[in-house]
Measured scan of single mutants.
Amino acid sequence: MTTFKLIINGKTLKGEITIEAVDAAEAEKIFKQYANDNGIDGEWTYDDATKTDTVTE
Rank of each mutant, 00 (worst) to 15 (best):
N36T: 12
V55F: 06
I7V: 10
Y34L: 08
G42D: 04
M1V: 07
K5I: 13
D47R: 04
Q33T: 06
I7A: 00
I8Y: 05
I7M: 03
K51E: 04
E16N: 04
A27Y: 05
T52N: 02
E28T: 09
Y46L: 06
K51C: 14
E20S: 09
T56V: 11
G10F: 13
D53E: 15
T3V: 12
A21C: 15
G39K: 03
K11M: 10
D41H: 12
I19S: 00
M1H: 08
M1Q: 05
I19R: 01
D23H: 04
T3N: 03
E26Q: 11
I30Q: 02
D41A: 10
V22M: 12
N38I: 14
I30C: 12
T3G: 01
I17L: 11
T18F: 12
T52W: 06
W44G: 02
G42M: 08
K32H: 09
F4G: 12
D41N: 13
A24E: 06
I17K: 01
D23I: 04
T45N: 07
D53P: 09
D53I: 15
I8P: 00
D47I: 11
N9E: 04
F4P: 11
I40E: 02
T3A: 07
D37P: 01
K51Y: 07
T52L: 03
K5E: 07
E43F: 12
I40D: 01
E28L: 15
A27S: 00
A24S: 04
D48P: 13
K29H: 06
T2W: 14
T52D: 04
G15Y: 15
A21L: 09
E26P: 00
D47N: 09
G39E: 04
E57I: 13
A25Y: 09
T56D: 03
A49W: 10
D41Q: 12
G42W: 12
N38P: 02
I7E: 02
A25T: 09
I40H: 02
I40M: 02
G15W: 15
K32L: 08
T56M: 06
T2V: 13
E43W: 13
A27R: 01
D37C: 15
A49D: 09
Y46K: 03
E43A: 08
T45S: 11
V55T: 04
I19A: 01
K14R: 10
D41G: 05
M1E: 03
G15L: 15
T12L: 08
D53N: 15
E57L: 11
G10Q: 03
T56F: 06
I7S: 02
T52I: 08
K32F: 03
T18P: 00
E16C: 15
K51P: 05
T52A: 06
E43P: 04
K5Q: 02
T56I: 07
F31I: 02
Y34S: 01
I17Y: 10
E16A: 06
V55N: 05
Q33Y: 04
G10Y: 09
G42F: 11
D48Q: 09
G10S: 08
L6D: 04
E43C: 14
K51L: 08
K51H: 11
G42V: 08
F31L: 05
A49V: 12
A24F: 14
I30Y: 13
Q33R: 10
T54E: 04
T54A: 05
Y46W: 12
T52V: 06
L13R: 05
N9S: 04
D37H: 05
G15I: 15
T54M: 09
V22W: 13
Y46M: 04
I19V: 09
T45A: 07
D53V: 15
K29C: 13
D37S: 07
L13P: 02
E43Y: 12
I40C: 13
A35F: 10
D48K: 08
V55Q: 05
I40Q: 01
N36Y: 14
G39H: 07
K11N: 11
T50E: 04
G39M: 06
A24G: 05
T52E: 04
T18G: 00
E28H: 15
Q33A: 09
Y34K: 00
N38E: 04
T54R: 06
V22C: 11
A35C: 15
K5A: 01
E26R: 03
E28D: 08
D41S: 12
I30D: 00
I19M: 02
I40A: 02
K5S: 03
I7D: 01
D53M: 15
A24L: 13
T54I: 12
D41C: 14
T18E: 05
D37T: 05
F4W: 09
E28A: 12
E16D: 06
K14S: 07
K11V: 13
A49M: 11
D53Y: 15
G15A: 15
E20W: 14
A49S: 10
Y34N: 00
L6S: 01
A25S: 10
V55P: 04
G15C: 15
T54Q: 05
Y34P: 01
E43G: 05
T54P: 04
A24K: 13
A21H: 03
E16T: 13
D47T: 09
W44F: 05
K29W: 11
K14I: 12
L6A: 01
N36G: 06
A21Q: 06
Q33N: 04
D53Q: 15
K14L: 09
T12P: 01
E28M: 15
G10P: 01
Y34Q: 01
G39A: 04
N36C: 14
K32Y: 05
K11A: 09
G39T: 03
N38Y: 13
T50K: 06
F4I: 14
F31A: 01
Q33F: 04
I19H: 00
T45I: 08
I19Q: 00
E16Q: 10
A35R: 02
T50P: 03
A27H: 00
I30V: 07
E26S: 11
A35E: 02
A49Y: 09
I40R: 01
V55C: 11
T45M: 04
L13I: 14
A35Q: 03
I8D: 00
A27V: 08
N38M: 15
T52P: 03
E26F: 05
F31R: 00
T2L: 14
K29D: 02
N36A: 14
E20I: 14
L13H: 10
Y34I: 11
I19F: 05
I40T: 01
I30R: 03
E57H: 08
K32M: 09
Y46G: 01
F31H: 00
W44Q: 02
D53G: 15
T18H: 07
V22D: 02
E43H: 09
Y46A: 02
D23A: 02
V22R: 13
D41P: 03
V55Y: 06
T18W: 12
K5W: 11
F31S: 00
G15V: 15
A35N: 03
D37N: 06
A25K: 09
V55S: 08
G15F: 15
D37Q: 08
G42P: 05
D48G: 06
K32G: 03
I8N: 00
T2P: 14
L13F: 14
E26M: 10
T2G: 03
W44C: 07
T3C: 15
W44D: 02
A21R: 02
F31C: 08
G42I: 11
V22G: 03
I19Y: 02
I8H: 00
A27K: 02
F31N: 00
T45C: 14
E43K: 07
K14F: 10
T50D: 03
M1W: 12
V55K: 04
T56Q: 06
K11Y: 12
K5R: 10
M1N: 05
Y34W: 15
A49G: 08
F31W: 07
F4Q: 11
G39R: 03
T56Y: 05
G10E: 01
I30L: 06
D23E: 02
G39N: 09
K51R: 11
T18Y: 11
A24T: 03
A25G: 06
E43T: 11
E57Y: 02
E57C: 10
T52G: 05
V22H: 11
G42A: 05
T3R: 12
K11I: 14
T52C: 13
K29S: 06
I40Y: 03
E57F: 03
K51Q: 11
A21Y: 12
I40G: 01
T12C: 15
I30T: 03
K32I: 05
A49E: 11
G42K: 01
D41F: 14
